[in-house]
């Protein structure tokens, strides 16, 4: 078989469509080969589509009434005793507060990608949050659920990319001051331990509240800490390296709201 009859590998064509040059002989082949050209065109289409995505392509989820209307029209009313009950992802997406804390130059790309993910075309975050909500419906008595302290603010904790798990965090008022109550499940495992943080999304300052040794923990909040600023609850995986700063390896996160 002569050189010119060997088609260019798919992955090289993909990179070529992104601007990489091909080895000379292969370049000559591709220029003359219909099959390779067609393959190249398909890659170019994918790339052009990706480049043309804009913030508006981030999905807006259907209103809550849509699911009700569907079940009503199909006579499946029994499926959904409460409108919110069945539509976890859409529901979560609808009430989700999307927070992008990127202060960097790619602010819009990141924030719309986050929006896309949260709004939940099967976005990981949303599904995780949905899963949490499902777990949340189970009565889960335990040291954490028991105290009937007034809840000041709460949030679901959703897994960050690469991670799994979910849970819930709330700020409760106790006779001894405010506490952050964290309840998690199925967290990604790894070398090290989990640490709970409160983060101010504006200044990116963070306060480490302590290690989370089991699926639940209570953390006293220092008097005077401005909870209106430190609204992000973050659980990170920290290596046993003696370094007190955040490892940058966050597992789950959520934003407190009252």
């Amino acid at each position: 078989m002569s050189q010119s009859e060997i088609h260019a590998p798919d992955d090289l064509l993909a990179l070529h469509a992104m601007g990489d040059s091909l080895p000379e002989a292969m370049g000559r082949h591709v220029a003359a080969c219909r099959q390779c050209q067609s393959e190249l065109d398909q890659w170019s289409d994918v790339i052009a589509t990706a480049r043309s995505t804009t913030p508006e392509d981030a999905p807006g989820s259907p209103s809550a009434e849509v699911w009700q209307a569907i079940t009503a029209e199909l006579g499946l009313a029994s499926m959904s005793p409460e409108p919110s009950a069945s539509v976890s992802a859409a529901q979560v997406a609808q009430v989700a507060t999307v927070v992008s804390i990127d202060k960097g130059r790619r602010r819009w790309t990141t924030s719309w990608l986050v929006a896309a993910s949260v709004a939940g075309i099967v976005g990981g975050a949303v599904l995780t949050a949905g899963g949490v909500a499902l777990n949340g419906s189970d009565p889960a008595p335990g040291p954490i659920a028991a105290p009937a302290s007034p809840v000041i603010a709460s949030t679901a904790l959703a897994a960050l990319p690469k991670h799994q798990g979910g849970g819930e965090a709330k700020i409760v008022s106790t006779p001894n001051g405010k506490e952050l109550v964290v309840d998690v499940s199925d967290l990604s495992t790894g070398e090290g331990f989990y640490e709970v943080w409160l983060i101010d999304p504006e200044t990116l300052q963070m306060i480490g509240l302590g290690a989370l040794s089991h699926d639940a923990g209570r953390f006293p909040i220092p008097d005077g800490l401005d909870l209106a600023r430190y609204t992000i609850v973050d659980v990170s995986l920290e290596p046993f390296d003696g370094d007190p700063v955040h490892s940058r390896d966050s597992v789950v996160r959520g934003e407190l709201s009252t």
């Binding site: 976890s88 507060t97 960097g104 709460s154 949030t155 959520g254």
Partner: peptide, 19 residues
């Protein structure tokens, strides 16, 4: 922090597995 994905879930949204 730029990669944060923060979802705040309504307490009401605990789904009942009705179907």
């Amino acid at each position: 922090l730029g990669r944060a994905t923060v979802a705040d879930v309504d307490e009401q949204s605990a789904p009942a597995d009705s179907v």
